[in-house]
Design a protein around this nucleic acid. Structure first.
Lengths: 219, 219
DNA sequence: CTGTTATTCAATTGATCTATTGAATATTAG
DNA sequence: CTAATATTCAATAGATCAATTGAATAACAG
């Protein structure tokens, strides 16, 4: 059949993308990149990998078309190649969540137990923000906040939460968010806030998904 | 950091799914499965792999949560684990298409040249079907047609196209579809129909995407 | 019960992937 | 120009993957 080799060539190309999704460290790097662009050594520090190893994984991401680079001085900044990549990661997560018992177990034992109240969906949050019924806090580090955040959110990194008790409302609900559905910063922030008697919830998903949904963002 | 190991465990699980997408033969098997359930040896014949090899790839799909099995007599029927899997495959394709130059080259040289007219999107096709302005033909083999097809479509397998000239309208437009965006049957059918002077176009995407979009299906 | 068919299992070989190491390149500061 | 920093390159060793082969199950037909 004449069409078979072409078709196979296409699948070979699709498999290249699949292959880059086959390593947990690369997935972690992609999640960091979903926050915004990062230099190689920033990513190495975030991921805990060696510089050389990080560099090699990043090059694979670039070769598979998942990331692009921008050179500025001696730094090379990597960023996601486009929104479709966020969609792909989301689809991967969803399949894993839905069909792998191990994922369910991990989420149940480590995440769900930390947050009994329902997380608030993005659209619902936006509605309440317009009515000024909530205070939204971004618990990521300042660099990530600076690279883009939910419009109107305050930046209170998790480590500095204690210093900012006074700025937080006691009656109004507080909503925390961080990097994505499996970023634990927001879970921990909510736990701390509740421990102090404040009304706190977690935003469903995280900043990359918020931006990807086209909701209002500030830089 | 206490959250790190849990998070890494999650990425390890996601990577399991990614790994199963890293082999072109498995992707081909997934595309066949997207048409409907199939026995192991049907899939072996379709893919051209040995039975044992096919079986092993299928087991990997099952272990990664992408496929499920149903045993009936001596046959084991595999099928996709859910619609999220179709979404995932679609996302994978889209990223590859958008960012891999090699995919663009393959599509341009082997597919685009065979079909100068725009393919018709599913929703547009549905509208015209209701107005009875088009004849829709399903050019897949009868077994696949029998397992489910676009409501109202005629089954005219590519090899039998010549036998059915008389049944086809000469003035009304004919729309052909097959297995998916990279299935070539519809391209070839359109080429043959045009060569005979009929007005023919291809449906954008294929049957799995049609079904997944919730559009009307017949069994 | 025997032979047949569909599927899976187990063992092997060659290929590919990962992390590490140390060196090479490139940009900037002094 | 020299030293320092950020990144990449090249070579290596150990682990994992893919396809083949032949055998093992399991369901069915006669």
């Amino acid at each position: 059949m004449s069409s078979s080799p072409v078709k196979h060539q296409l699948f070979v190309q699709f498999a290249r993308v699949g292959k880059t999704l086959s390593n947990p460290h690369r997935l972690a790097l992609l999640e960091f990149l979903a926050q915004g662009e990062r230099s190689v050594d920033a990513l190495a520090r975030l991921s805990g990998l060696s510089i050389a190893n990080t560099s090699q994984h990043l090059q694979q991401l670039r070769q598979a078309g998942l990331a692009t680079t921008r050179k500025s001085g001696q730094f090379v900044h990597y960023q996601l190649a486009g929104d479709e990549v966020v969609v792909l990661l989301e689809a991967l997560r969803r399949v894993a969540e839905q069909h792998l018992a191990e994922v369910e177990r991990l989420v149940k034992t480590h995440l769900a137990s930390k947050d009994h109240l329902e997380p608030i969906p993005a659209d619902e949050l936006l509605k309440r923000m317009k009515q000024k019924r909530v205070t939204v806090i971004d618990v990521r580090p300042p660099e990530e906040y600076a690279a883009g955040h939910v419009a109107g959110a305050l930046n209170i990194p998790l480590e500095e939460l204690e210093k900012h008790w006074k700025e937080l409302p006691t009656s109004r609900e507080i909503v925390a968010y961080c990097r994505g559905p499996y970023c634990l910063l927001a879970y921990e922030a909510v736990a701390k806030l509740r421990h102090r008697g404040l009304k706190a919830r977690r935003m469903e998903k995280g900043f990359p998904e918020w931006r990807q949904a086209g909701l209002p963002v500030e830089m």
